[in-house]
Each structure stands twice: as C-alpha cells, then as structure tokens.
C-alpha cells in the first residue's frame, strides 16, 4: 500500500469510526429510554391495580 493510499484509508476510517461511534451512543441511549419506559409502564400498572 502506498503512502497516499494509507492516508486516504485513514481519512475514510476516521469518518466511519466517528459515525459508528455516534450511532452506538444513540443506540445505547435508545436502550436506556426503552428500559425507563418499561419501568414507567410497570409503575403505572401497579398504580392502576391499587
């Protein structure tokens, strides 16, 4: 692999890794929200049961 090819690969990898990292952070956040929603549904259900 030539020097130019290495630098081009590095540049595109940086973009890919940053976007992937961002998507993973958002996915983790969505999982947390889903868990919180589940807890709230459980809380509301317990309240309605008395």
């Amino acid at each position: 692999m030539s020097t130019a090819e290495k630098y081009v690969t590095a540049a595109y990898l940086v973009v890919f890794v940053v976007v992937l990292g961002y998507v993973l952070i958002i996915a983790a956040k969505m999982q947390r929200l889903e868990r919180e929603l589940g807890e709230l549904v459980e809380l509301a259900r317990r309240r309605s049961d008395g």
């Binding site: 976007v19 956040k29 929200l33």
Partner: peptide
C-alpha cells in the same frame, strides 16, 4: 442525507427523553 438522518434520530431520542421525564414526574 447522513446529517439529516442523524439529526432526526437524535431529535427523536431527545423528545422521547423529555416526554419520559414528564411522565416520571406525573407518576
């Protein structure tokens, strides 16, 4: 298109977070 997609995903997450916080306060 990538920016628009990420913008919409993050906005949806933030709105959902805000609604859940309201719901938690109500309950």
């Amino acid at each position: 298109a990538l920016a628009a997609t990420l913008y919409r995903i993050e906005l949806t997450g933030k709105r959902l977070d805000s609604r859940l916080r309201e719901l938690r306060e109500l309950l």
